[in-house]
Design a protein around this nucleic acid. Structure first.
Lengths: 338, 338
DNA sequence: CTTGGACCTGTTACCGATAACAGCTATACT
DNA sequence: AGTATAGCTGTTATCGGTAACAGGTCCAAG
């Protein structure tokens, strides 16, 4: 039903190849012919069949984006940044959310690899499970990791220094006079691990003994933070300062704290990470550690473009690390002392 | 480089066709052969080339989703709901955000039509610009509209009753004793128009004269609401009650109000629409009009599936309307009177 | 006048799958 | 035994593009 190259060719009285050349701005064609072809193409409202084109050229102009959670504005922002680079270059985005479920991820990635030119992945997998990706990359898959990276995986990555993130957040709570600091920890991902390491590091720096009972295993979703904090409050003995692995978990935790009749920033100080949009508009504005999500997405997109273009990426650009910085708002209680 | 049907065929010693049949669970094949083929396929880690398949079958198993703004959690929620139906049916999502820019929309839609089996669109276009879509639909495009619909366009649609949304919101402000009610109005879309109509209707019902100077033209983004409200405050004479066309605009407006040194819910009552996630966690929890985003996305996805399967959709299911309801929180000041 | 080359256009094959049909083999039935 | 038929497998053409190469035309230079 749709118009094909052959239709135009017949109409203009040339071969399919000539039409193809006209459409693709090939140099080997006379301006007059190109003109005639393009005119007819426009008149018939020709739209190239992308599947046929992809089959013939082995280029789909699709980029797969795998994020843990689209309801997390952090990733929505990263996705938008990727799009801001990809779209002008003629690429469209195949976005896929794994909802923080590792079992879904590999399957999705394999499916996406079949129909895209390259992938930008924020992986939910534990670093120890990188095997599948190692194989794909060896087989020529173009992959760039973003936000959640995996060590000893031979592909470009853009992230922040998550040990530093954990250290900064915890250090801030210590500087406010806290010594008994809890941690809502995430999952098995490198991000979660690193932030926990940073937490421990800050304690060590201040000679505070690490107490395993202050670590509350949680997850990275808002609902995880809510559930964990609720349980903690019911159990009792909640520390008066808490570093949550990310902003959604912190916000979920805040909800539980409020429901428990406690005051955030007074009874309990809480710090998140990621500087999610709306964090400053919350009932108690969230103190957090911030780095640029826009930069993150853009750099990842650029690295992928280079990689797809066959360029070898210099070693020093293969691992971009965005500097984290503290954003002090009210949830940590710091403002009380001003 | 990747494994193809031919590779497997050679390995097993059968024809490509037999392999294809085994892979696709075709009935016309002996269990033994299927077994052998599948075994080799698994061993070689065969992944079908989706482009080739799409070219041959004219089915891509891709659904295009066009939303105005992915940073608006409202649409993130709709997108997730679509995915929850599409994924189990074997479809992947090609998501595209137009950033509320009508000039981008038609081009994006045309591009998406080429590589998808159907589209779910939340259109930014003015209802008068439906021409392009009318043509596509006549040419056989499978399209379902969601949230932002266009009248007299012959395709299924899922939305809420936006006149009612505007009426409920405005009515609520009137019931709180306000008579001078402002409106941050949106763009030229039907949603914006309908909500404005609802606003007028509520005034009419209570014999309050419509005053054009109380309508502040705005947009649907948070930044639009912020800019409009800022300007309004600088100009002076801001009404003490405001109905914002949607939650992001309301939140942007709230930011400007706070910056202007005014108290939300006391100096100025504000009501939004959409019940965006986090609305209840805001500094001043946002009073809004709510309907189910999940329902919206799921119904749209189901309608599209039916349409793609060639089923004719009964007239009464072609236009799903989700009932809106008022969610009273604090931004309207209602809580003060309790 | 011939010849070389620039410049344009067409032909053929192929990308990797599937549809449609043709053909072969066993079994069952007369 | 002969034949119909079910059941499986292979062949060929095709989807709509593009790559690679093979011409053809025309002008300029020798």
């Amino acid at each position: 039903m749709p118009v094909t190259l052959a239709d135009i060719a017949r109409e203009v009285g040339v071969s399919k190849m000539t039409v193809s050349r006209a459409i693709n701005n090939n140099a080997l064609i006379s301006p007059k012919t190109r003109q005639r072809v393009l005119e007819v193409a426009r008149r018939l409202n020709y739209q190239p069949n992308q599947h046929a084109r992809a089959l013939a050229t082995n280029r789909s102009y699709l980029i797969g984006v795998v994020v843990p959670d689209l309801m997390n504005l952090y990733f929505a922002e990263v996705a938008r940044a990727i799009e801001s680079i990809a779209r002008p270059a003629g690429f469209q985005l195949l976005i896929c959310s794994t909802d923080e479920d590792p079992t879904r991820e590999v399957g999705e990635v394999e499916a996406l690899l079949q129909r895209t030119d390259g992938l930008i992945i924020s992986s939910v997998l534990a670093p120890t499970d990188a095997g599948a990706y190692r194989k794909m990359i060896r087989d020529g898959a173009r992959i760039v990791l973003v936000d959640r990276t995996m060590r000893n995986l031979n592909c470009p990555a853009v992230a922040t220094d998550n040990v530093e993130v954990g250290r900064i957040a915890t250090d801030h709570l210590i500087s406010l006079g806290h010594t008994r600091i809890g941690h809502l920890s995430g999952d098995a991902s490198s991000v979660s691990n690193d932030r926990l390491e940073g937490y421990k590091l800050a304690l060590l720096n201040h000679r505070i003994r690490f107490d395993k009972s202050l670590i509350m295993s949680c997850g990275l979703l808002e609902s995880d933070g809510y559930a964990a904090m609720r349980k903690w409050i019911q159990k009792g003995d909640v520390p008066r300062a808490i570093f949550a692995v990310n902003d959604p978990a912190a916000i979920g935790g805040m909800k539980a704290i409020e429901e428990g009749g406690l005051k955030i920033g007074e009874d309990i100080a809480i710090v998140g990470a990621g500087n999610i949009h709306y964090g400053d508009m919350l009932r108690v504005p969230l103190t957090t550690v911030s780095w640029s999500r826009a930069e993150m997405g853009q750099q990842a997109a650029q690295l992928l473009m280079q990689s797809m273009a066959g360029e070898t990426i210099p070693a020093k650009s293969r691992n971009v690390s965005l500097p984290p910085e503290l954003v002090i708002r009210n949830s940590c209680g710091a403002k009380r002392f001003r």
